[in-house]
Computed example of a mutant assay.
Amino acid sequence: MITVESSLESDACYHLEFEKDISRFCSQSIKFTYYQDGNPHTHIPDFLVQFDSQEYVLYEIKSNDVALQRN
């Protein structure tokens, strides 16, 4: 069972589930710290995806409106 926080993430699960090159995926499974302007920030990506090629990719799911906003 995959836990998601939005309908967009739920939609993404559908696409990830049926993508033939993906061997598995999990939601919010990794947490990391990065530094911006010398300040630490913690982030938890929406999905960690493993492809058949053994490549791992982190995905962040956002609506177009949110993705196009500038801080």
Score class of each variant (00 low, 15 high):
residue 3 T to P: 10
residue 2 I to F: 02
residue 40 P to K: 05
residue 8 L to H: 02
residue 50 Q to P: 09
residue 61 I to Q: 03
residue 54 Q to C: 05
residue 27 S to A: 08
residue 29 S to F: 12
residue 5 E to I: 04
residue 43 H to A: 07
residue 26 C to L: 11
residue 41 H to T: 13
residue 48 L to E: 15
residue 64 N to V: 14
residue 23 S to T: 13
residue 18 F to D: 14
residue 56 Y to A: 14
residue 2 I to T: 05
residue 64 N to F: 15
residue 41 H to N: 13
residue 22 I to C: 06
residue 16 L to A: 03
residue 16 L to M: 05
residue 53 S to Q: 08
residue 17 E to Y: 10
residue 67 A to W: 13
residue 42 T to I: 06
residue 68 L to F: 11
residue 13 C to H: 00
residue 61 I to E: 01
residue 26 C to I: 09
residue 4 V to Y: 01
residue 51 F to C: 07
residue 60 E to F: 04
residue 46 D to G: 06
residue 56 Y to P: 15
residue 49 V to M: 11
residue 32 F to W: 10
residue 43 H to M: 11
residue 30 I to L: 04
residue 71 N to D: 08
residue 61 I to W: 03
residue 22 I to N: 06
residue 71 N to M: 11
residue 20 K to I: 06
residue 50 Q to G: 11
residue 55 E to V: 12
residue 3 T to Y: 05
residue 10 S to M: 14
residue 71 N to F: 15
residue 65 D to I: 14
residue 53 S to R: 08
residue 31 K to W: 09
residue 42 T to Y: 06
residue 12 A to K: 01
residue 42 T to R: 06
residue 8 L to C: 07
residue 43 H to L: 08
residue 46 D to Y: 04
residue 13 C to I: 03
residue 20 K to C: 09
residue 12 A to E: 00
residue 63 S to W: 06
residue 22 I to D: 05
residue 47 F to S: 01
residue 50 Q to E: 14
residue 68 L to Y: 07
residue 36 Q to F: 14
residue 59 Y to A: 00
residue 59 Y to R: 03
residue 27 S to D: 14
residue 19 E to K: 05
residue 17 E to R: 11
residue 58 L to S: 01
residue 60 E to K: 04
residue 56 Y to S: 15
residue 57 V to Q: 08
residue 9 E to P: 10
residue 42 T to L: 08
residue 54 Q to E: 06
residue 34 Y to C: 08
residue 53 S to A: 13
residue 17 E to T: 07
residue 30 I to Q: 11
residue 1 M to H: 06
residue 29 S to M: 07
residue 37 D to H: 12
residue 23 S to Y: 11
residue 44 I to V: 10
residue 21 D to V: 04
residue 50 Q to S: 06
residue 44 I to R: 10
residue 14 Y to P: 02
residue 13 C to A: 00
residue 71 N to A: 13
residue 41 H to A: 08
residue 13 C to N: 00
residue 46 D to A: 04
residue 49 V to Y: 12
residue 55 E to H: 11
residue 52 D to R: 15
residue 70 R to C: 05
residue 51 F to I: 01
residue 25 F to I: 00
residue 27 S to W: 13
residue 37 D to Q: 10
residue 25 F to P: 01
residue 58 L to Q: 04
residue 42 T to M: 08
